[in-house]
Amino acid sequence: MEKKHYNIPVFISHFGCPNACVFCNQKKINGRETDVTLEDLEKIIEEYLEILPKDSYKEVAFFGGTFTGISMEKQKEYLEGVKKYLDRGLVQGIRLSTRPDYINHEVMEQLKKYNVTTIELGVQSFNEEVLKKSARYYPVETVYKACEMIKSYGIDLGIQLMPGLPGSTFETDIESAKKTVEIGPQNARVYPTLIIKDTEMERMYQRGEYEVFSLEEAIKRCRKICALLEINGINIIRVGLQPSDDLRNGGVAVEGAFHPAFRELVDGEIYFDFLKKIKDRDGFLNIKACEKNISKIVGIKKKNSIRLEKFQLDIDNSLDTSEIEVNGNKYIRKDILKEELSGCR
Rank of each mutant, 00 (worst) to 15 (best):
E39A: 15
R99G: 00
L49W: 02
V239R: 01
E50Y: 05
R189F: 08
G283D: 02
L165S: 02
K178E: 10
D314F: 14
L229E: 04
C24R: 02
P185I: 13
L38C: 12
F11R: 02
E59A: 03
Q92F: 00
E264A: 14
A257P: 04
I45M: 05
T169Y: 00
T117D: 01
I297R: 01
G208P: 13
K43I: 10
R238F: 03
D316H: 10
I297N: 05
G154C: 10
K133N: 15
V36A: 10
P192L: 05
D55V: 13
A261V: 11
G299Y: 00
N127P: 03
R221A: 09
I195C: 06
I231M: 07
G158P: 11
A261W: 08
F62S: 02
L165Y: 06
I8M: 07
E175D: 14
E323D: 12
E129M: 10
T172D: 03
L229D: 07
L49Q: 01
S168E: 14
P243Q: 03
F311I: 04
A218T: 06
K28C: 00
E340K: 13
I94N: 02
P100D: 05
F262R: 09
G250E: 11
Y331S: 10
L96Y: 07
K27S: 13
K302W: 05
L319I: 11
G251V: 01
I150Y: 03
I150C: 00
Y271C: 02
D173R: 11
I103V: 15
I270N: 04
C226G: 06
E47G: 08
L215P: 03
S168M: 10
E109F: 09
R32F: 15
Y137S: 00
Y271K: 03
A257E: 04
V130P: 01
Y6R: 08
L161H: 06
A261F: 13
G251K: 12
K4V: 04
V252N: 07
P192E: 07
I234S: 03
Y153R: 12
M204Q: 13
R136A: 07
V212F: 04
L228C: 05
G69V: 13
L111R: 09
V130E: 02
L131A: 00
Y191P: 06
K133S: 11
I159Y: 01
Y57C: 00
G65N: 04
M149T: 15
D246I: 14
N19Y: 15
H259T: 07
A257H: 03
M204I: 06
G256Q: 08
N104V: 12
N304M: 09
E209S: 11
I45L: 11
N30E: 14
T321P: 00
V190L: 03
G343A: 06
R88L: 14
E209Y: 08
Q92G: 07
I103M: 08
I183W: 09
E264T: 08
I12R: 02
L247G: 06
K179L: 15
V239L: 15
F262E: 04
I8P: 03
L228D: 07
L337M: 14
K74Q: 12
D335I: 12
I231H: 04
A257G: 07
E230N: 10
E230I: 12
A61H: 11
K132A: 00
L241D: 04
M162R: 06
Y138G: 00
G233E: 13
N127D: 15
V36C: 09
S97E: 11
K113S: 09
I225R: 08
D156V: 01
